[in-house]
């Protein structure tokens, strides 16, 4: 059978009720969010269901929204049903003061490195990850560079002329 966005939304609402919210379809791709405590349950449901079969984790990343107090960090999962070529985007939000999100490594092996990358750049603490340490940046780095309170430029350099870099 053909899997439409309406069908996925209907199945999710049947299973999780009003806990799954924020349904959108930007550029035709179904996007929704759930409380962060439910992230593994939702992923497991989408994985196990005999019709939905979202069994491929395409991408996992984070976004920092400093203007949303209490839900600053969004963790975004991109899932793919390879059989029917259908994709969904699933978000959970965590406060930046306690950015604890359950790790999806038990469900998807691909989540291992992607969660390490997300930890490296945004400092999301994936509870249950087997080896949560930096993967791309130098080990000595003591901050999370893609959080928006940190300037993009290297702060150790004082002899660079700001006007030459378009920020004079």
């Amino acid at each position: 059978m053909e899997i439409t966005n309406e069908y996925i939304q209907q199945r999710l609402t049947e299973k999780f009720g009003d806990q799954v919210t924020g349904f959108e379809e930007p550029y035709g791709m179904l996007t929704f969010e759930a409380p962060k405590e439910l992230n593994l349950k939702v992923l497991q449901f989408l994985y196990d269901d005999e019709v939905l079969k979202f069994r491929f984790l395409t991408d996992l990343c984070a976004v920092h929204y400093p203007e949303q107090p209490g839900r600053e960090l969004a963790v975004v999962y991109h899932l793919h049903n390879l059989e029917n070529n259908v994709r969904v985007r699933f978000k959970v939000f965590a406060p930046i003061a306690a950015p604890d999100v359950f790790s999806a490594t038990a469900l998807f092996s691909a989540a291992n490195w992607m969660e390490r990358e997300t930890y490296d750049f945004f400092g999301v603490n994936f509870v249950g990850h087997p080896n949560l340490k930096r993967i791309l940046n130098v080990d000595e780095m003591d901050y999370f560079p893609l959080r928006k309170e940190y300037p993009l430029e290297d702060q150790t350099r004082i002899d660079k002329d700001d006007e030459m870099f378009g920020r004079g």
Binding site: N137, M141, P145, Y150, L152, E153, D154, R157, F165
Partner: peptide
């Protein structure tokens, strides 16, 4: 020589 255009957290200046 100086990091060039890559004035960023990941590049040696």
């Amino acid at each position: 020589s100086s990091g060039g255009i890559f004035d960023t957290y990941s590049v040696l200046q």
